[in-house]
């Protein structure tokens, strides 16, 4: 078996008297989609935010391709190869979709490049930006303001923005939230087609079992089941944690 691209060990975080995440281990391998599922408040999003560096864990390590990134701030983790898409589309609505994506494409450039005049800077990042937009199906909307996009298109833009930094592992926070079935199918193909390691937190169990190579179930901050989707589906502890109705 190949070495994991992303390796998380002993992640723990307490908020006041509540342990939100308790000693979570997980691995994501290259080209693999690893889904973390669980009820609201099970600690999924906190786990994701700790891996990305937005929330400081009380304990635990994050290792990216053999390099311990646990102490790095968010921008440094991004440059090391972790990408992140957000659940609530919080892109820059007053800017064009191309400008939104260009942020990530240009990150880490030297100060000389950062002070290039607008037109030259656009040329500098333009080709890759347009390729990313085309890849997520927004090729024709490069010059449109982000605020004019539909909900589904915002999800596509989120993916393009996350891919813009050239990540080795992509963290996705509920990429299917609020999508119609056709849009969900499109996003599903995009994630599968990304060809890089993906760690996603998701509510939509149909989507998860259609796309994931590996599923981890969290309940009250602890891993109650982890493995390939068929095994997790059959696991009684996992089934219990989904509650009624939502059982896979």
């Amino acid at each position: 078996m190949t070495e994991p691209v992303l390796s998380v060990r002993g992640m723990r975080r307490r908020f006041g008297g509540v342990v939100a995440v308790r000693d979570v281990d997980l691995d994501v391998r290259d080209g693999e989609v690893h889904a973390v599922i669980g009820a609201n408040g099970s600690g999924k999003t906190t786990l994701l935010r700790m891996i990305f560096g937005e929330v400081q864990p009380d304990a635990g390590r994050v290792v990216l391709a053999g390099r311990d990134v646990s102490e790095l701030p968010v921008p440094a983790r991004v440059r090391a190869g972790i990408g992140r898409a957000y659940q609530i589309s919080s892109n820059f609505r007053g800017m064009s979709t191309a400008d939104n994506v260009a942020f990530g494409v240009r990150a880490g450039v030297g100060i000389a490049t950062a002070l290039l005049p607008g037109a030259a800077a656009a040329r500098h990042a333009g080709e890759r930006t347009l390729a990313l937009l085309a890849r997520v199906g927004l090729g024709k909307r490069a010059d449109d303001l982000a605020e004019d996009l539909s909900h589904g298109e915002h999800r596509q833009l989120e993916l393009a923005m996350a891919l813009a930094t050239g990540p080795r592992v992509l963290l996705l926070d509920e990429p299917f939230a609020g999508l119609g079935s056709a849009e969900a199918l499109f996003v599903r193909d995009l994630i599968r087609g990304a060809g890089i390691a993906v760690l996603m937190v998701e509510h939509d169990l149909d989507a998860v079992f259609a796309i994931a190579d590996r599923v981890t179930v969290l309940a009250r901050g602890e891993v109650v089941a982890s493995g390939d989707p068929a095994a997790v589906r059959a696991d009684p502890a996992a089934r219990e944690s989904f509650g009624n109705g939502a059982a896979p």
Partner: peptide
């Protein structure tokens, strides 16, 4: 507009 987003772009 959004500090977190700029950080997430690696800036």
């Amino acid at each position: 507009v959004n500090e977190d987003r700029i950080a997430a772009a690696g800036i």
